[in-house]
Design a protein around this nucleic acid. Structure first.
Lengths: 209, 209, 209, 209
DNA sequence: CATGAATGAGCATTCATTCAT
DNA sequence: CATGAATGAATGCTCATTCAT
């Protein structure tokens, strides 16, 4: 009753390679989708744009995702999964609202810069520039919104309308984020300082009324 | 080769009518396009959607615009043309930076509410939430950007990076604008107070570093 | 106030030509569809098979029909429209059941031969032969079914289960029709004699039990 | 290069199991195919539909059949193999033509009812009504055709064109068969009586001309 | 200029089939 | 042999755009 080492290795390596290939293909699609969404927007992107961004055949896309929407959600989940712990740590370790904002904003810009880096090269522009969020950013939005709302609820942040505060914070961060990304390399610290200060000053003044 | 009286009359009346008709057709396309863009988004909208919204034949579209992009730009120009004078007046009459911001923000929200009203209501969800600006809003952005930049250049506004300031202001206004539009009816004054305060507080604190 | 003859002619010929072209295209699609359905069956036929059978572009199909099903129905309507008057005349003019059957069967085979003639050349066979009725035949079936049922109801035909009688008549006619069409040229009279006799003998014996 | 005991055992047991497995797999495919064809029709069915109806992997299908067409034929052969002995017995034991027809028709309707029972119920309407035979029925047709032709050749049946007679008989049986299957439960004897009588009466009258 | 039918590129999706494991 | 992922051809259908009328 012998099973040769070769048998085991072959079988393991075999399955391993297949598994690796599957994971790699999935990653390839996600990576291409990230780039495509960020360049064409969700509506502008087509499934074909995404597969063209990979070396896969058209049909292969459907072995991994049912639709454009599903890839979008996978990306959003991915972004949320990576960003949430950072934001949560910021919330838990923050000694005060200022601290929280600084840390959160810094985490956000760090995340943004990383996302951007992995984005790759632009495709040809289609139509006028239309602002459209990447799936990861949408996920991050929700985290930020929650964090800010919680801070207000806890009384840690000045008392202002939480919807407006969250919206304002997100707006500042998003637009400033775009400005930051136009620099090479992006100056994360400078952006963080400006945006955190802006938010803190803004919320203070808005609360003082 | 005769030219009948009818021909002349037709030609005279015709040109008049034709001119009017030309302007009317162009306007019909723009009006339909505004509605369609606001309901389906730039990417979701098709030229067919636009002409279906008029009484014109499909080919006629191309007598007025080369493409969907061109209509979009025409709408943006239109929006800018309407908004610019207001912003300019705000600039010229402003006694100080605070005053300018208040007036400009108020003008922006007023404009936004009007646009929203005339836009009709969005039809159906097209996949995940994607932020997509109307052409008019894009135009307005540029105006605001310029106004803010100028204020900084003139020394009227605190000395901060103008790109960041403009970006932050726009971001706040845009996101807060969405929050405002979710109310019925939109409370323009409350939104204005919050946003103007937020911006003023923000720029002050950011400048103080 | 002159309108030149040329103007009129141009305008008439113009519209006329366009109308003619529209009608011709529609006919081309129907003709191709008839052939395709008869050779591949309804399920086996694709819209692209149909347009490949014309000189039109793929998109043009949809200017005339919404789907494969709609062409099918148009063909069935067509067949019914052409066949119904003949059958009705047979019903009204028939002096007895035998007469009615002869005339109806003859009309059916005449119709079938015409249909077949206009069918054109075979495409390549796809899969095993699967019996599938052409749209026209389906329409004709209903006519026949009604005619037979009525004859029984009126007591003109022997008293047998009308469902079985109609089914049997149709079955005989259809299968014998295929045999007839294998001949070149089809001997309509011989087929009519055989089928009418067969039906009459059959119904008589079935009724005698 | 050693062959371990395990290898041998595996190989021995394996072949036994493999043989069984091979037959079982083939049967699983055929069973699934029967159901799928009867529910979706030949054209509507896909190879994927068939393998989805088994527990096998998609590639495995091609170890047993080259294509959908081949399974269809295998099913037809199967049906013929089961029906042929019955028909042959009917032929051999028949004392006269009438007897033969009764027995054959009865066998056919019995077969039909069984097929129908085991076929499961059709799923959804795929467009307009299209008559599409199952593979087994096609096989049976050929048997019947041969039986009838032989009867005529032998002089047992009245002298009529054998093509027409076979066609007519099959047509009657097929259409009446559908009527019968619409009843629950199907009245095989009544259908047999009607159809056999119809055929006998028909052939007699057709021959008398 | 207005019209609207024709065009064919393009898209989402499915499927038969192959082949490395 | 079994597996099931990869492939790319094929399909139904939509759309921007052209052009004869």
């Amino acid at each position: 009753m012998t099973v040769s080492a070769t048998d085991i290795v072959e079988s393991e390596a075999g399955e391993g390679r297949r598994e690796k290939s599957k994971a790699a293909n999935r990653q390839a699609i996600l990576t291409a989708a990230r780039r495509v969404f960020s360049q064409l927007g969700y509506d502008g992107a087509t499934v074909r744009d995404i597969i063209r961004g990979t070396e896969l055949a058209s049909g292969t896309f459907y072995n991994y995702f049912k639709s454009k929407e599903e890839v979008f959600e996978a990306l959003a989940d991915d972004g949320a999964r990576r960003f949430r712990p950072v934001l949560r740590a910021a919330r838990e370790n923050a000694t005060c609202f200022e601290d929280y904002i600084y840390t959160a904003v810094h985490a956000y810009f760090t995340f943004l810069a990383e996302e951007h880096q992995s984005g790759g090269h632009p495709l040809k522009d289609r139509g006028p520039h239309v602002r459209s969020s990447t799936p990861e950013m949408l996920a991050v939005y929700e985290e930020v919104r929650d964090g800010v709302a919680e801070a207000i609820a806890k009384g840690v942040a000045p008392k202002v309308d939480p919807d407006y505060l969250a919206a304002a914070s997100i707006g500042v961060a998003q637009e400033a984020g775009e400005v930051m990304l136009r620099q090479t390399p992006p100056d994360i610290d400078a952006a963080t300082r400006f945006v955190a200060d802006f938010i803190l000053g803004g919320v203070q003044k808005a609360a003082s009324r």
